[in-house]
Design a protein around this nucleic acid. Structure first.
Lengths: 233, 233
DNA sequence: TCGTATTGTTATCAGTGATAACTAACATTA
DNA sequence: TAATGTTAGTTATCACTGATAACAATACGA
């Protein structure tokens, strides 16, 4: 808010660096991103960039956090596009938003879910909050469906043993989720399936000649099956 | 075979290069693999390596193909460890073999399913045959289960519309699968789910502090649910 | 207006992939 | 056996990269 002129310029520079980094990433692939190339395009010398990011990995981390948030934004927007009591619609919407975002931003998707940057894992303490947002969108929709009594969770409850619940509880606590623990398991299961199909598609493990409509139809069918199993109304 | 002395030495050198490459990968991460470092460790100069691999990507491709085959070997071995008519056992075995292999060889797993090498996609014509092997293991088990009449595919058939089948048919043909097309869809769906969970776990998207037994229990529960849905006997 | 923090520069280091030009060893054939 | 061509290695070099140190210019607040 009460930002000085300097702070504003600095923020703008950081934004520009990340913007050009994303452009380069989109053109030449996620791992080919080079501080020198970015500096060149900005009309600066490369050491100047080190005033803004401690090193290349720090820039990578920032891009990863941004990507997490962009994905979460997309999921939340898709959820809001359906009425609050249309649980099946919301679940389908966020599932397709997940895939659509990945297709539209494959490099950013790879940044998060692939391992494009050499020998480097983003520090969890920085990325976790942004990463948790996505998971929470799934959880929230399922939670709402259950609370309105419009979901059949008998199968889920049967599978989610007390022993398993005990093991997962710490994670649930960490995310501050106070609903039915079985929902947590269900969200993870759904997310896993959705992520698995999208990941196979984005990273080219389906037929390379397959049309986007075909993989889209496969995905849609799976999502419908998902909702059917919960008997979502 | 009828290999000359030279050919044998050459093959041994290639094996040694890949072996050291894998070691470096395991130690310092998949993308940090450097031709110069490999040459150094072999007591050679780096240009010599170009007699064996056209460039770094070519070495990467070779490692990827090897990884695909290692994974397929693991899946096939797991399948063979169960009797031929124990379909539920075989399905569970290959699912857990998938996860176990990924946990034991995370860098190789990343090589295949992540995108660790800068701006480079492995050429499909080289990798596809090896990649298809894994998919075929899933398909084979499901096919056997169906043929013996020990699987309930009513839900699958209901979901797998004729339109969808028409779209997927080219892929089915390419893999020379002559069984029920719905099984193809089912195999993909199962593989997607299994891959999704493993991928989330390997790439650190579950709780970073989560114990391996916990993620293992989650995975086991999901696999059991999978078999239950098919009413596999 | 002066002093200081910030932002940029040049120069330099170490390491990388890659290629050209050359040499030594090997294998095949006359 | 001697000549010849192939193969596997070398040194030298180029164009990059990330990163740091030392220094200069700018902008800001007292």
């Amino acid at each position: 808010m009460a930002s000085t002129r300097r702070e504003r310029i600095r923020a703008a520079t950081i934004t520009e660096i990340k913007k050009i980094a994303r452009q380069h990433m989109a053109e030449k692939g996620a791992a080919a991103l080079s501080l020198r190339a970015i500096a060149r395009e900005m009309g600066m010398t490369s050491p100047a960039l080190y005033r803004y990011f401690a090193n290349r990995d720090a820039l990578g981390t920032a891009l990863i956090v941004d990507a997490y948030n962009a994905l979460a934004d997309a999921l939340e927007a898709a959820r809001e596009a359906c009425t609050q009591d249309d649980h099946a619609g919301r679940l389908a919407a966020i599932a397709h938003a997940y895939r659509d975002w990945a297709l539209a931003s494959p490099q950013e998707y790879a940044l998060i879910f692939g391992t494009p940057i050499p020998a480097y894992e983003a520090p969890p303490d920085v990325t976790s909050p942004a990463a948790a947002r996505g998971m929470m969108v799934f959880l929230g929709v399922l939670d709402a469906a259950q609370q309105s009594g419009k979901a059949d969770l008998s199968d889920v409850h049967a599978a989610f043993s007390p022993a398993l619940q005990g093991q997962v509880q710490p994670w649930i606590d960490k995310l501050n989720f106070s609903g039915d623990p079985a929902l947590f398991y269900l969200a993870l299961s759904n997310w896993g399936m959705i992520h698995g199909l999208v990941s196979l598609e984005i990273f080219g493990h389906l037929d390379p000649n397959m049309a986007k409509e075909t993989s889209g139809a496969l995905f849609r069918t799976e999502v419908e099956t998902l909702a059917k199993r919960l008997k979502l109304k």
